[in-house]
Write a protein that binds this DNA or RNA. Sequence first.
DNA 1: GAGATTGATATATCTTTCATATCGATGATC
DNA 2: GATCATCGATATGAAAGATATATCAATCTC
Lengths: 297, 297
Amino acid sequence: MDLRKLRYFSVLAEEKHFGRAAQRLSLSQPPLSLAIRQLEEEIGARLFERTSRNVSLTAAGLALQREAEVLLRRTEETRLLVKAIAEGKEGRLRLGFGSSMLYRGFPKILDAFQAASPDIELSVQELNSTEQIEALQRDEIDLGFIHGREVPSRLEGFRYHAEPFVACVPRDHPCAGTRSLRLSRLKDDEFVLFSRNVSPDYYQSIIATCLSAGFSPRVRHQVRHWLSVVSFVANGLGVALVPSTLKASNMAGAVFVSIREAKILSETWCVWKAGGPQRPALDTLIQAARKQSLAMN
Amino acid sequence: MDLRKLRYFSVLAEEKHFGRAAQRLSLSQPPLSLAIRQLEEEIGARLFERTSRNVSLTAAGLALQREAEVLLRRTEETRLLVKAIAEGKEGRLRLGFGSSMLYRGFPKILDAFQAASPDIELSVQELNSTEQIEALQRDEIDLGFIHGREVPSRLEGFRYHAEPFVACVPRDHPCAGTRSLRLSRLKDDEFVLFSRNVSPDYYQSIIATCLSAGFSPRVRHQVRHWLSVVSFVANGLGVALVPSTLKASNMAGAVFVSIREAKILSETWCVWKAGGPQRPALDTLIQAARKQSLAMN
DNA sequence: GAGATTGATATATCTTTCATATCGATGATC
DNA sequence: GATCATCGATATGAAAGATATATCAATCTC
């Protein structure tokens, strides 16, 4: 049961045809038949049902198909990883982050990691959630911090942070003095929203939240940074729903009021690619993120 | 880069000696040297530093050592899994659980899973947390529900449930009428405790909780089931700290009073072995457990 | 500096893998 | 329903790969 036979098996499992599979493997058909028969003997299980007219996977074969792909992919990733280490290219971890992470302990994670692993170079790039997911799957970054409600498929991760949305209103707004408000009191205000292109999840969940409170928000301004949102509000250009962290921005003219409706959360997830080779440096970084996550909750 | 070479590499990486490694592999030394050299060429990286006197791993070799072991182990597990499926032995999932799970949605998980996968046979066995962890590592069970504060090493899992401890006192106890109490008010009572052998974690955390409240509990009775704990209390044999679920036991004579001290939690974790082959039936079961977990929190 | 130990090299033997040629079974076609 | 085409299995010799024995060069021990 070596990788050669698993590779043959994997192609045959896709093609379900000895001739075509052999062709794809640059091989003639007899050795493929032989290899599959040997594989079946080594495992002690029939993997394909063949008639002289038809080839199909057995239940055991189906299970092996899933596993063979994992094993083959991971083997190849291991080769690349080991080669990269030998060439000194693995002393580097690439992080993706949205700008909102700057208010959520991102610098502390970097500091903690650099203190623990001073030899590893960190390179960070600002990407929105969608871009980060794509970058992870293309192996262009090693770790990301995204917004959403769950770990996207093919990734691993944990919920890094969750905080309630609060209303952000100008100082002279009727609600500015209250401790908390129902969302419906903002139904006639103009909303400053985080740009849909930059973070569809934020945009989506704010709209959905207003809808479930019984009104459709009047959207006037769309901006690209949270501080800009607060700044717009402070200048009387509208109201907004923002993660409560933004209270710390201390901008004159903007007042933060908590929302009666429970459980409206802004969630940040720390994610990385699933099923790859072990990477101690990445593990250390994830550990630093977990620690920071605990410190904030 | 086939499994044969990885196996050779793995042994050599342990022995750090071509002669001994070859012997362990039932091999003469030259083919081992050749295989390692070929592996290094295929990967494009030097894996060992050799002098004529000494063999040691390079950084790249160290990374490959970790990965090679994973790949070899997983390959073998895959063989066993596929064989088991072919022999019809995989239509079975073995669960471990502590008796307290009976009050925590365990029957519902079983029902939900059986409804979704009627062909899979479930076999359950009652084991304490320590036994379950060992059974998982020996592949004797597939999924367990244990008490603790985290996922034990070499396992994967999630926090299935967390609930506060409450005080359980007899009807005629001075505190029976109050809505909540400070632990120190129980410092002169006798305690009924869950047996230390059965669940060290429970025993431990109750003792620790009392200690941090400033007293050492007087332990008189140790019993092996939560309902026995409540029953003892109902009969005036002492007081106890129990997970709040036990309120539902509705036993006459026992009164439940919540505790002022915050954050004393009884945590249940759902765990399984990490890094094994993919198993759809197990995934479905885990999914059912997650769903039940959400329904209870 | 003699002897022992270690990993590398050389070469012959054996095993594995492969391609060509062919067979037997099955289903489509007329 | 006989003929033909297609598919996977089998047979066989050739090429490639893996192994064992014998030997070498370097290095350490005493």
